[in-house]
């Protein structure tokens, strides 16, 4: 008769950790810092952005005594600038960091990348372990590339172009003002900026779910890794990162 057991018995892991998991330093300090700075900025940007688009507070009295919309726009702009800086630091670290810092890149010209993408997708759908990475897997990497990098650039370019409208003679207008005629006019640029903003909470939802799933199902310490930098792996897992190099 089949014995009833948990797939990973926590007691066994504590008694014989070496039999189960090894520890690897994956996320370096700049990766972790930019992750949390971006997470915070995107949250602030989305919430303040919703208010700017549909202001709901209505302070009464003389306008001189209030600065609600002005203050919220200030916060939005400040968070935007911090996000841009964090974004640029992270892009610098793409080259300066370790191999894992590059693992999210879509290596579409490598057959192994496509195999990894397919395997990861089927693993998630079949709810099975067996395909654990130290860096990003190809599926996660594509999601980050599309949502964070590509749409991040869209928001940065449209956002800075819209911000530059307040000072048409300024340097930001010279650098990013061309975006507005490219997209048609200021109105359409606002529209695109607003529409694309919705991708970020949707991404956050998928991201938080999938890392929680990975952490609990694979026991790889994915959630804590973005704080400590360390991920846990079993011997076979390390082979799954080979397609990266």
């Amino acid at each position: 008769m089949a014995k009833v057991i948990q797939p990973f018995d926590p007691k066994d892991v504590v008694a014989h950790p070496e039999a189960y998991f090894r520890r690897a330093y994956v996320w370096q300090v700049p990766v972790r810092i930019t992750h949390w700075v971006s997470a915070l900025c995107v949250t602030v940007l989305f919430l303040t952005g919703l208010y700017i688009a549909s202001p709901i507070l209505a302070p009464s009295g003389e306008p001189a005594h209030h600065f609600v919309m002005g203050r919220i726009r200030q916060i939005h702009f400040a968070a935007g600038i911090i996000f841009v800086i964090s974004f640029l630091v992270r892009i610098y670290w793409f080259w300066a960091g370790n191999n894992y810092a590059r693992s999210g890149f879509p290596f579409v010209w490598r057959a192994s990348w496509w195999r990894d993408l397919f395997r990861q997708a089927t693993d998630y759908l079949r709810l099975e372990r067996g395909h654990v990475h130290l860096g990003h897997n190809a599926l996660g990497g594509s999601a980050y590339t599309f949502f964070v990098i590509f749409l991040g650039w869209v928001q940065i370019f449209t956002g800075l172009a819209l911000y530059s409208e307040t000072n048409p003679a300024g340097i930001l207008n010279k650098l990013f003002g061309w975006v507005i005629p490219l997209l048609g006019n200021s109105y359409r640029t606002h529209m695109i900026h607003h529409l694309v903003a919705w991708a970020f909470p949707i991404f956050a939802l998928l991201h938080i779910y999938i890392v929680t799933y990975d952490s609990t199902q694979y026991g790889n310490g994915l959630i804590t890794s973005i704080i400590s930098g360390y991920k846990f792996y079993r011997q076979g897992d390390i082979r799954n990162d080979e397609w990266l190099s």
Binding site: K3, I5, P7, G236
Partner: peptide, 28 residues
């Protein structure tokens, strides 16, 4: 729906999974 399927699958596993050695890696 993914979460629900995972929970359902997990409960099914608790009952039916065969004995596996503690150091066993499916990948190996």
């Amino acid at each position: 729906s993914h979460l629900v399927s995972t929970v359902v699958r997990q409960n099914a596993r608790k009952v039916h999974v065969d004995d596996t050695p503690p150091s066993g890696d499916k990948g190996e």
